[in-house]
Amino acid sequence: MDPGAETARGGRKPVEIHAAPLGRLFAFLVDALLLTGVVFAFSMALDATVGPAVSFRAEEGGAGNGFMIHRDRVMLAWILNVALGAGYFIGSWARRSGRDLPSTPGQRLLRIAVGRTGGSRPITLAQATARWLLLMGPVSLCALLGIVAPASRAPVALASLAWYLILLVTTLRSPAGRGLHDRFSGSIVTVRARRAGPGSSP
């Protein structure tokens, strides 16, 4: 049973109009682009302070295609970037301000928001964390394994790809557009209600 679908058909509770998958995907891409830009700027700042994560000087021992990875700096970058990403998404979804449901900048651009099922309340911090883990966890895990266990990258990348396909398929097949990440975290992505202007009908 899909609780979101039930709510959408319900009579007493406020009707949630779930967001179309294409819009959600586009919003995610906007967020990912924004965040990648921030992460890139952050990496430049790290280069300047603790040194580059990759160097190309042959005398530093670069083999094969001539580059050398500084694992400690890469690890530091991973920790900071994951924290940055978590702050961006979890902070955006669990924010409580005003009457509107919270949303990331990309979602706001596409006029969609994330809320709890069965009502128009924002999701809790725990729900937002669960949602972020289910969405961004595999990418972050892949990146971590790429640093600590490069041999496991390919199978984990394949498993991640499979996971994202599952999310896509479950989202598309759900009447309320709730993929597994929504169901496990008890969230739903809805279209933001337009504010009633002066003279508009109630």
Binding site: D31, A32, L33, L35, T36, V39, F40, S43, M44, D47, P52, A53, V54, S55, F56, F67, I69, V74, A77, W78, I79, L80, N81, V82, L84, G85, M136, V139, S140, C142, A143, L144, G146, I147, P150, R153, A154, A157, L158, L161
Partner: peptide, 24 residues
């Protein structure tokens, strides 16, 4: 997948989109 992930060593870890390190 193995080939594509070999590129991962030169990407900023934890970025949501594949972005190379600034020095790359």
């Amino acid at each position: 997948a193995e080939d594509l992930t070999s590129w991962q060593a030169l990407l900023i870890p934890g970025a949501p989109l594949p972005a190379p390190f600034p020095e790359v």
